[in-house]
Computed example of a mutant assay.
Amino acid sequence: MTFHVKHQDAMPDDLRRRLDAFAAILTRWNARINLVSPRDLPHLWDRHIADSLQLADLVPPGARLADLGSGGGFPGLIIAIATGTDVTLIESDQRKAAFLREAARATGTSVTVLASRIEDADIPQVQVVTARALAALPQLLDWASRFLAPDGFCLFLKGRNVTDELTAAAAGWHMTISRLPSRTNADGTILKLGNIRRARHSERAQG
């Protein structure tokens, strides 16, 4: 299934129903927890749900996925809702972790919610690591490299500063890079990064 739509229209009925349920519970919880900016609530589908949903096409069937700093469920929980992928949501904020568990229950989605700092998380290696609006690329790579299987890759949703972030990351990391245009944000880019390894001088510095 290819997810090209920005809105509920033309989605399979079951997916639309489950994403509607997610949107409803997020809206209720957002009054108590800052999951998204209140000014974004009228644009929840375009700015958050559809933005996350476009990653679903890029996750191989049967892959295990870790989502870093899951927050309001973007993109990890949305991917799990859409694909049934085995997803671990890593979120250090206990209230946001509680929201993720309740949203998963309300949408009938099986995920693992790990209420832990990313640095302290201990999970089996995964094929895909995702993150959205979390940190600059060098930091993301440092976190993600701990979890990736040798054949794994990262999917990061990035904005207009993506070129600067790639330049900064090149000082400490080697990787293969695919830049895919966002279908929901004219300034957005999906980074698909594979064969990730530290540069040798960076390894010496770490040691």
Results as ranks from 00 to 15, higher is better:
143 W>F: 12
13 D>V: 14
162 V>T: 13
145 S>F: 10
189 T>G: 07
191 L>S: 00
4 H>N: 15
66 A>G: 03
138 P>D: 03
140 L>C: 02
30 N>W: 12
36 V>K: 01
33 I>E: 02
32 R>T: 10
153 F>T: 09
102 E>T: 11
73 G>S: 02
154 C>S: 13
132 R>V: 09
33 I>L: 12
133 A>Y: 05
7 H>F: 04
146 R>H: 12
21 A>M: 04
109 T>G: 01
127 Q>F: 00
146 R>W: 05
23 A>Q: 06
47 R>V: 02
32 R>Y: 07
84 G>K: 14
98 A>W: 07
180 L>W: 08
29 W>K: 02
90 I>M: 05
38 P>G: 07
46 D>H: 15
8 Q>M: 11
186 A>E: 15
29 W>S: 05
72 G>H: 01
170 A>K: 14
202 S>L: 08
90 I>A: 06
52 S>V: 08
59 V>D: 05
81 I>H: 01
206 Q>T: 09
1 M>Y: 08
203 E>M: 14
40 D>R: 00
63 A>C: 10
9 D>R: 15
131 A>M: 01
18 R>S: 03
177 I>Q: 15
98 A>M: 10
20 D>I: 12
93 D>S: 14
205 A>Q: 12
167 T>E: 13
173 W>Q: 10
138 P>H: 02
32 R>Q: 11
117 R>V: 12
148 L>E: 08
182 S>H: 08
121 A>P: 07
149 A>D: 13
139 Q>Y: 00
53 L>Y: 03
191 L>E: 02
89 L>K: 09
131 A>T: 01
12 P>R: 08
47 R>K: 15
103 A>M: 13
44 L>N: 04
158 K>D: 03
182 S>I: 09
183 R>F: 03
104 A>F: 08
149 A>Q: 11
197 R>V: 04
133 A>L: 06
86 D>C: 11
134 L>W: 03
2 T>D: 14
65 L>Y: 03
58 L>F: 10
119 E>Q: 12
162 V>M: 08
121 A>F: 10
80 A>F: 13
12 P>L: 10
58 L>P: 02
141 L>C: 00
30 N>K: 09
199 A>W: 00
127 Q>N: 11
104 A>N: 07
63 A>Y: 11
12 P>T: 10
178 S>P: 01
173 W>G: 08
129 V>D: 02
42 P>V: 07
179 R>K: 13
130 T>H: 03
178 S>M: 13
2 T>I: 15
87 V>H: 14
156 F>E: 04
170 A>I: 06
62 G>S: 07
97 A>G: 09
37 S>W: 05
55 L>V: 03
188 G>Y: 01
194 G>P: 03
142 D>V: 06
66 A>Y: 00
143 W>A: 05
155 L>G: 06
160 R>D: 06
